[in-house]
Design a protein around this nucleic acid. Structure first.
Lengths: 198, 198
DNA sequence: ACCTGAACACCGTTCAAGT
DNA sequence: ACCTGAACACCGTTCAAGT
């Protein structure tokens, strides 16, 4: 097994993705280059191509690794409202763990489902909330868009500059997210009640 | 006044931005380059720098031109629900007019307000809806995030692949957007009713 | 004032050659 | 198998020189 002339150790894709994530975090998607990544790993730029198809695959892979760490709420019979809140907060803290990556994740929702199985869990919760089967996809898509739109606003700085602190530990963004989730839950409850009235 | 050797006519920034928008529409933000733009205009790449500070300013300027075309609903005393729906549809059709630009607009919400005055109009409508002054920024930010999240999902193809046609002219995306706006309006009405109960 | 060519410091990626 | 250097086709941008 040939070995890097510069490092005396073989490259692994784990190393590559870890270093890529580090660069992405500090410099954003545009700040990552194959050549800088190679320098970071003390390796010839071309060595990377033995472990990664190309730059696009590298970025996607790094994001996939992040998204796969989403902690989905267990199917423990808790009220759907609670499960939905838990899911929303888990997703938000995932975004916060790598904010400079999030615009990419946002633009590639297929990756999200593929790596986390989010949609199956989302469906389960919405079924528990009484959403009819025919409305499932529509509702899930809308709610996902709402939450990810919120995170995009947060990540891109729309929320950061607004209003100061509201308390000891919670920021304006925290309380605003809370009320956004409230609005979503209330929206579903309203819909449920409406269909019950028929 | 010196003149392009290749074209026999002076460059104008209007020309530059129009051509840039054309390139952005067909190739996306990553597909635009100063050199390709210069070729499109039959001009030396360096001539562009006499009219535009750099590439970033060029992209921002092109997006600003698009956003400034947002048609805001007039203050004609129509019910706030109707005005909110009109605003949402105007914003959506703006996004549809240049979908490949939208991820950039989405990541730069400051540009949106600066070029369209959206937030003042948004505030006016929310005041009419009975949102208290202290909740204005929070509510407006949340609703904007919801709508732009939806458009991001639409623009990035999340909605495109789902469910076929629902009728003659309306697509799945159209009806889903409609129900998303319904959810938003219902959410505000609920909040209004709740504060009226106090 | 406006335009231009040469140059610099970067990119991603292919390919043939090394071990 | 894995690594590497040279090379190709691109980038954005500076600068000195032209008209």
């Amino acid at each position: 097994m040939a070995v890097s002339a510069r490092r005396g150790q073989p490259l692994t894709s784990e190393e590559i993705y870890a270093a890529a994530l580090r660069l992405l975090d500090t410099a954003g998607v545009d700040g990552l280059s194959m050549r800088k990544l190679a320098a970071e790993l003390d390796v010839n730029p071309m060595s990377l191509y033995h472990h990664v198809e190309n730059k696009q695959a590298l970025v996607r892979g790094a994001c996939a690794a992040v998204v796969s760490r989403l902690r989905l709420p267990p199917d423990d019979g808790a009220p759907w409202q609670e499960q939905l809140r838990t899911l929303a907060h888990a997703y938000r803290s995932l975004a916060h763990s790598h904010p400079s990556l999030w615009s990419y994740v946002d633009g590639h929702p297929d990756l999200v489902d593929q790596e986390s199985g989010l949609w199956a869990v989302f469906n389960r919760i919405l079924v528990a909330a009484g959403i009819p089967a025919g409305e499932l996809v529509r509702t899930r898509t809308t709610l996902y868009a709402f939450v990810s739109g919120f995170l995009s606003a947060e990540t891109s700085g729309l929320l950061a500059e607004l209003g100061g602190e509201t308390g000891a530990d919670t920021t304006f963004a925290d309380t605003t997210f809370e009320s956004a989730v409230d609005l979503i839950v209330a929206g579903i409850e309203t819909r449920h009640r409406a269909s019950g009235d028929r």
